[in-house]
C-alpha cells in the first residue's frame, strides 16, 4: 500500500527524533504509524491544550518501545513542539526511549516493560464506568508483547466486566526482537484466542487508512464485551531495507548516512 503525504510526514518526524537521539526502535514504530494516525485524526477525543481533561479518551501505548510513533503524532497534534522531537533520549529530554506519564503531555502510562498496558487499561475502563463517564479506553500492544501472561489475565477480566468501553489493538507485524513470532512463540490462532477470551474481534490492514477508519467507526463491536482489533502490519513499513528485517527492530549508534538513507525513502 502506498503511503500518502501525511503518513510520510509522521514517519519523517520519527526520523527527526532518531537523528537527535542517534537511536530508536525504527521497525516497531513504523508498523504502527497508520494506527496512531487514524486514532488521533478520527477516533480519540482529546485536547492538547488540556491533556488531562476528564472527558478525554484514554490511549495507552503498551508497546512502549514504539514511542517514537506516539511522540510523532503527539507533536503533530500540538501536545508539545515538533522541534522537541530532536531531543529524543538526551539527558534532560522529556522524550525517553520509552514513554513516561507525567513527563510527556498526552502519555497516559509509563510503559516499556511489556504486558502492563492492558491490565492498566482495564483499571481505567472500570474507573470510567464507576465515574459514569463516556470516555473510551484504547490500548495498543505489540505481538511479541502478548507472550506475556499478564495480558491474558487482564483479557479474562475485561470480558468478565463486560468492558465495552475498552478496545485492545494489536500491532501484528509478525516479528519480535529475535525473529518471526511464528518461530519464537507462535501466537496463532490469534483471532480465535482473543475471541475465546471474550473479545469481539476483527482484523484489519494496519496500514490502510480507510479500512482503519471504517473498523474504528464500528466500535464498540458489542455493548456487553470488550473489542479487539488485530492490525496486520509490516515491521519497518516504508523503509525497504528495514521491512521485515529484525535487525531494524532497534538501532543504536546511527550515522548520518543511516539517517539520510531513511529520509531518502520518503
Amino acid at each position: 500500500m502506498q503511503m500518502d503525504d501525511r503518513s510520510k510526514l509522521l514517519r519523517r518526524y520519527v526520523i527527526d527524533a532518531m537523528r537527535g537521539g542517534g537511536r530508536g526502535h525504527l521497525g516497531s514504530s513504523m508498523s504502527m504509524i497508520e494506527i496512531l494516525r487514524v486514532l488521533y485524526d478520527s477516533v480519540l477525543k482529546f485536547d492538547p491544550a488540556n491533556p488531562k481533561s476528564l472527558d478525554r479518551d484514554r490511549f495507552v501505548l503498551s508497546k512502549g518501545h514504539g514511542c517514537l510513533a506516539l511522540y510523532a503524532i503527539l507533536a503533530d497534534k500540538g501536545f508539545f513542539p515538533i522541534s522537541e522531537l530532536e531531543s529524543f533520549c538526551r539527558p534532560t529530554s522529556r522524550l525517553g526511549g520509552h514513554p513516561e506519564r507525567g513527563k510527556v503531555p498526552g502519555v497516559e502510562a509509563s510503559t516499556g516493560a511489556l504486558g502492563h498496558g492492558l491490565p492498566i487499561a482495564v483499571g481505567l475502563a472500570i474507573a470510567m464506568r464507576l465515574q459514569k463517564r463516556n470516555s473510551r479506553v484504547f490500548v495498543l500492544t505489540g505481538d511479541g508483547e502478548i507472550n506475556e501472561g499478564s495480558n491474558w489475565e487482564a483479557g479474562m477480566a475485561a470480558a468478565k466486566h463486560k468492558l465495552s468501553n475498552l478496545t485492545v489493538m494489536m500491532d501484528y507485524n509478525k516479528l519480535q526482537s529475535y525473529g518471526k513470532t511464528s518461530e519464537v512463540l507462535d501466537l496463532e490462532p490469534l483471532v480465535d484466542k482473543w475471541k475465546s477470551f471474550g473479545f469481539v474481534t476483527h482484523e484489519v490492514d494496519g496500514h490502510d487508512v480507510s479500512a482503519l477508519e471504517a473498523i474504528f467507526k464500528k466500535l464498540p463491536f458489542s455493548d456487553s464485551a470488550p473489542s479487539a482489533i488485530i492490525c496486520h502490519t509490516i515491521k519497518g513499513k516504508g523503509f525497504p531495507f528495514a521491512e521485515g528485517n529484525p535487525e531494524w527492530h532497534h538501532k543504536s549508534g546511527m550515522t548520518e548516512s543511516d539517517i539520510q538513507q531513511m529520509y531518502d525513502c520518503l
Binding site: 502510562a109 491490565p119 472500570i126 489475565e153 487482564a154
Partner: peptide, 20 residues
C-alpha cells in the same frame, strides 16, 4: 479478580490514575 496478581496490580494502578 481471581488468581492474577500481575493484572490486579495493573488494574489497581489504572483505577488510582483516575482518582480511586
Amino acid at each position: 479478580e481471581g488468581v492474577s496478581e500481575q493484572y490486579i496490580v495493573g488494574m489497581a494502578a489504572g483505577l488510582a490514575m483516575e482518582g480511586f
